[in-house]
Amino acid sequence: MGFLIQLRVLLWKDLLSELRGKELISMMAFFGLLVLVIFNFAFEPGSAEAAHLGSGILWVAFTFAGVLGLNRSFLLEKESEGLQGLLLSPVDRGVLYLGKLGGNFLFMLLVEALILPFFALFFNLDLWLLLPQLALVAILSTLGFTAVGTLFAAMSAQAKSRELLLPTLLLPIVVPVIVAAVKSTGQILEGRPLAEVAQWLKLLLAFDLLYLVVSFLIFEYVVEE
């Protein structure tokens, strides 16, 4: 039980500090919105092409916003010596990882929920009935993205060129997540049944499980002095 209490405290700490400032989520969501707007200049709005490219653009917006958020997640700890405090506390390094992951996962999911209505608006899509399927894809993809992202964010926060390092490390690794997310979102937007998307969901699930376990095990080597 001690494990769950520790996890709750760690998670609550991140949520509370974000609730007080709301800086991270508002900036991430605004940045995602900007990506959507800027991509619309690349092609004729409302064309068949636009509908086809929609899922790709949506995930570019999510990914960039996510990288932005991950970059901040350990920076705050670093600036206020919080990380040192966490490392001194009698908490297992793996639990520390899960706590940070939980925060990053929830923030990114919230930002995705904020960006999605604008996506529906800009692309003239009626997403109400597709929401459960889209939510499933979003949850699985975001979990994989932040599972690796949290590990790498802890690394890049301690390096000199931190803002540059994180996307450089993270984006090549999460290629399968992005491919699966874009493809399955595209298929869902075309109105295909969930069974056709199942293969992608399985791939995402495999990615999530693999990197949750690996990151959980490796995290201590990243933060330890």
Binding site: M155, L169, P176, A180, L203, F207, V214, Y221
Partner: peptide, 18 residues
């Protein structure tokens, strides 16, 4: 070392996804 491990494990998943 972290990237050497994470990156190599990624290869089969990248392959199947693509």
């Amino acid at each position: 070392a972290v990237l050497g491990i994470v990156g190599f494990l990624d290869v089969p998943i990248v392959y199947f996804s693509i």
